[in-house]
Nucleic acid binder design. Structure first.
Lengths: 147, 147
DNA sequence: CATGAAAATGTAGCCCA
DNA sequence: TGGGCTACATTTTCATG
């Protein structure tokens, strides 16, 4: 499947406002509303667009503490295994593996530092986890689309 | 302004699917469509919901390299200054300050490793930047809402 | 891909608890 | 104050060309 410039324009418009009407998007990319809908459906089916989400201010919702936790394992762990491990932590917003010292990094969002400590204890209690190193976010400088 | 459990339910529904209809959301939180709209409008006005965005698979759009760059500065730099610095880097998706060794962390999304190198050079060329340490994302394990 | 019509949804006003 | 209901405008959606 190939993605052309019109598709990219639609994606940009949807990243800016996922609730924009197809007609509004069409005005930006010079297409009729049904044509835009067909392309969006295709982008969704192909996986290029994974979904639409609300960008929330966690502070306003009472979740003010955000941290990046670098997790080290003993031995080799598969991405599949890591995904299973961290999916079981509801406070984990996202997780990924990196080139570098830690085996994985997990982004967590908690109500406060006490709550973060509890999450860290749970992560450290996972099988084969040898250690964690945590960077608490002091100030979110900016966030372009999704973070 | 206070956010109650119904608001939180609406937020959860919108994070899962930002293009859900107000009636669909209402069915989840036991409210009529107009009532849901009023609450969403209020959450938007108060800033609790900052907007709606498409969650995109960068790989499918030809942007396959993602990295977290830890940036160190000489001396003290204000968050305002950091925001200005990194806003000028289009490839920077998000940036934040952390408790720990680096002064700031920048998430960047590039087409490939060559493009990443170019971005790193630009960041290292910023005034007072003393060094960077980069973790390239090997595999994105999961992403709950926005990342 | 555009057009046009039918169905679904968004939106505002009004009344009630 | 906040939610339901009604009515009208807009949008989605599917047919057709």
């Amino acid at each position: 499947m190939d993605v052309d410039d019109i598709d990219r324009g639609i994606v940009v418009a949807l990243q800016r406002d996922a609730r924009a009407t197809f007609a509004e998007i069409g005005a930006e990319v010079n297409l009729s509303a049904p044509a835009v809908k067909r392309r969006v459906d295709r982008l969704l089916a192909s996986g290029a667009i994974r979904g639409f989400t609300a960008v929330v201010d966690p502070v306003a919702l009472g979740w003010s503490t955000e941290a990046y936790v670098e997790v080290s394992y003993s031995g080799v762990v598969s991405p599949r295994r890591l995904t299973e491990d961290f999916s079981g932590v509801p406070e984990a917003v996202s997780a990924w593996t990196v080139s570098g010292v830690p085996d994985a990094v997990v982004q967590v969002q908690t109500r406060d530092v006490r709550h973060l400590e509890e999450v860290l204890q749970r992560i450290r209690g996972l099988p084969d986890v040898t250690g964690t190193q945590t960077e608490i976010v002091l100030s979110r400088l900016f966030r372009r689309t999704q973070d």
